[in-house]
């Protein structure tokens, strides 16, 4: 089994996909670092002070002003109200949720890339794992070996898991290293609040507790990894089902982008919450930024993703072992 996985990893590396992904990340992170740097600068210029309390207070007042506008949607108003309570809570507890530093950047980067960027990167690796063998014809050579089919597929899946983990780790490391040049490398022990939950349109703060940033990051990356594995598994299933890598990519891309759009509509169309793609923003539950939607919680979203993942795995294995290859 190990040698099979080894073999699959070798194939993956030969395709140079991982390098391309690392390059993409290494290119994007400085971009965002610069953008955030600029943002902090302009904010400081506008307020004439770099005191974060003033800035947070200003954000609160801006939110309050937006709330009083008559032209905002109800869902958005609910969300803003929750945001407001949360910001006020941070302020009252004298905690700066945006204290600049590489760990903060890393955390924010992970939070923002969990629903689209990272799944896309994972998709790039997973999309052609099986379909390329089918379209290239190498699948016949592979299956003529005296190894059971499920073992072959399993080795491919394990290779996928390994490379997904590798990508997530690289995102963490690169975003830390690169942004640290600008923001400094400290801030691991910064206290952050988590455990916000939403009931109706009220923010419930009675289970709020403080965790150091390193633990917060570790938890968030665990969730990021979970999402990436789920997306990777679904792509993997499509890769088994379809011979064309382009079709796999197309379908995944369409559903991921559809997810990004649907997220904003779940409040009106409730059954959409059973789609995997609207449940990708797991980190929002940890930070308390989730849109307040009836019945959606961390447990619910993880369960939905797990069900989709397991179903995808079962389908992949059944189809792959039963299929006629010609």
């Amino acid at each position: 089994m190990t040698s099979l996985v080894h073999n699959e990893m070798l194939k993956l590396l030969r395709k140079k996909r991982l390098y391309v992904i690392i390059l993409i990340i290494a290119f994007l992170v400085p971009l965002f670092t610069y953008a955030q740097f600029k943002q902090i600068q302009t904010a400081a210029e506008k307020l004439g002070t770099d005191d974060w309390r003033t800035r947070l207070q200003q954000e609160i007042v801006d939110t309050q002003n937006r709330l009083s506008s008559s032209r905002i949607q109800d869902e958005w108003r609910k969300f803003l109200k929750v945001r407001l309570t949360q910001q006020q809570y941070y302020l009252d507890n004298d905690i700066n949720p945006q204290a600049p530093g590489a760990p903060t950047f890393m955390r924010v980067f992970a939070e923002n890339s969990i629903d689209l960027l990272l799944p896309l990167l994972v998709m790039v690796v997973a999309a052609d794992l099986v379909s390329s063998e089918a379209s290239g014809g190498t699948i016949k050579l592979l299956l003529t070996r005296p190894v059971q089919r499920w073992r072959i597929l399993l080795s491919k899946y394990l290779a996928l898991l390994l490379s997904v983990s590798f990508i997530v780790l690289m995102v963490g490391i690169l975003s830390y290293l690169i942004s640290g040049i600008v923001f400094g490398y400290g801030g691991w022990n910064l206290p952050l609040l988590t455990g916000f939950s939403v009931q109706g349109d009220e923010l419930v703060t009675n289970s709020v507790h403080m965790v150091p940033q390193w633990q917060y990051i570790l938890m968030e990356f665990g969730l990021v990894w979970f999402v990436c594995v789920a997306v990777g598994t679904l792509t993997f299933m499509l890769s088994v089902l379809l011979r064309s890598t382009a079709a796999v990519m197309g379908i995944m891309l369409a559903s991921l982008i559809a997810g990004a759009i649907l997220v904003n509509m779940v409040s009106s169309w409730e059954s959409a919450k059973y789609f995997f793609m609207v449940n990708l923003q797991l980190t929002n539950y940890v930070s308390g930024m989730a849109l307040p939607i009836e019945g959606m919680s961390l447990g619910f979203s993880m369960a939905v993703l797990a069900v989709w993942t397991i179903a995808a795995l079962v389908i992949s294995f059944v189809v792959f072992t039963k299929r006629d290859v010609y």
Partner: peptide, 10 residues
């Protein structure tokens, strides 16, 4: 590492 993180988050 990530499994650990995930477990901790849960």
């Amino acid at each position: 590492l990530f499994l650990f993180g995930l477990g901790w988050a849960v």
